Computed example of a mutant assay.
Amino acid sequence: MKKIKIHPLIIVGLFISSTANGLAVYRHYHDDRQTTVVFAVLCLLTLGMAVFGLIRNQKMN
């Protein structure tokens, strides 16, 4: 099966999404702890996907 590179704009979008989720964690920290946990998990998930995409694209070159 042929491996396909992840488009750089998708990786940039993941970094932007991770930053937005991180800012939501900061904004909701004192108000609602359950929302903070959800946004923190989303932040780590999108950041991990972006880093994985960068590593995968580097290995394919």
Rank of each mutant, 00 (worst) to 15 (best):
A50Y: 04
H7D: 14
F52R: 11
T35R: 09
G48M: 02
H28L: 10
S18T: 11
V37P: 01
I10T: 14
H7I: 04
R56Q: 10
Q34E: 15
L23A: 15
I16R: 04
N57A: 01
H28F: 14
T35P: 00
K5N: 07
M60L: 15
L47D: 01
P8A: 00
Y26W: 13
F15W: 10
L45A: 11
S17K: 13
M49D: 01
I4C: 06
T35E: 10
Y26D: 03
M49W: 03
N61H: 10
V37W: 11
I55Y: 04
G22A: 12
R33W: 07
P8G: 01
Q34R: 15
N61P: 02
D32H: 10
F52W: 14
S17C: 07
G13A: 12
M1A: 12
I16K: 06
C43N: 13
N57I: 05
L14Y: 00
V41A: 10
G22Y: 08
H30C: 07
N61M: 08
K5V: 03
L47F: 15
F15Y: 12
L47E: 05
V12R: 13
T36H: 04
H7V: 05
A20E: 05
L47H: 08
F52Y: 13
L44M: 12
K59C: 01
V51C: 01
I6T: 12
N61A: 07
I16M: 03
K5D: 04
M1K: 09
V12K: 15
H28R: 09
R33L: 14
N57Y: 02
K59R: 10
I4S: 10
K2Y: 09
V25M: 09
V51M: 02
T19R: 11
S18C: 13
T46F: 14
S18P: 02
Y29C: 11
L9G: 00
G48C: 03
V12F: 09
F15I: 11
K3L: 14
